[in-house]
């Protein structure tokens, strides 16, 4: 599992690499929830090195979006591969997630 946090240009970048599935989602979910406590920044999920996402990963995106909405901030997705992008899109999540062009 690859999970990194970095603050950049006023946003919290969350880089998740390799895969986001039901075997690792709970651990990642807990770490992100903890990191978002007392954080007032937009969140950018850097998916440039993410190969795979399932519905367990989608739950992390909803949770982060709800958390950011509660503080008036947004959640962005950066460089998902075509299938990760397709899963997010088919689930209708681009109605509340934005795409980041650069980070």
């Amino acid at each position: 599992m690859g999970l990194k946090f970095e603050e950049k240009k006023g946003a919290l970048i969350i880089e998740i690499s390799d895969k986001l599935d039901s075997l690792n989602a709970k651990e990642i979910y807990d770490k992100i929830e903890e990191r978002l406590k007392n954080c007032d920044k937009d969140v950018v999920f850097d998916f440039e090195n993410l190969d795979y996402i399932s519905s367990a990963g989608l739950q992390i995106l909803i949770s982060a979006a709800k958390n950011r909405k509660s503080v008036g901030k947004d959640v962005y997705i950066y460089k998902p591969n075509s299938m990760v992008d397709s899963v997010i899109n088919v689930a209708g999540f681009y109605s509340f997630l934005k795409k980041a062009q650069q980070i």
Binding site: I62, S63, K66, K69
Partner: peptide, 19 residues
């Protein structure tokens, strides 16, 4: 939950069989 509009109260999950 799949068709529920996004809000701070939206329940997580429910997308597996939909996918």
């Amino acid at each position: 939950r799949v068709d529920e509009p996004f809000s701070e109260k939206k329940e997580e999950g429910g997308f597996g069989l939909f996918l």
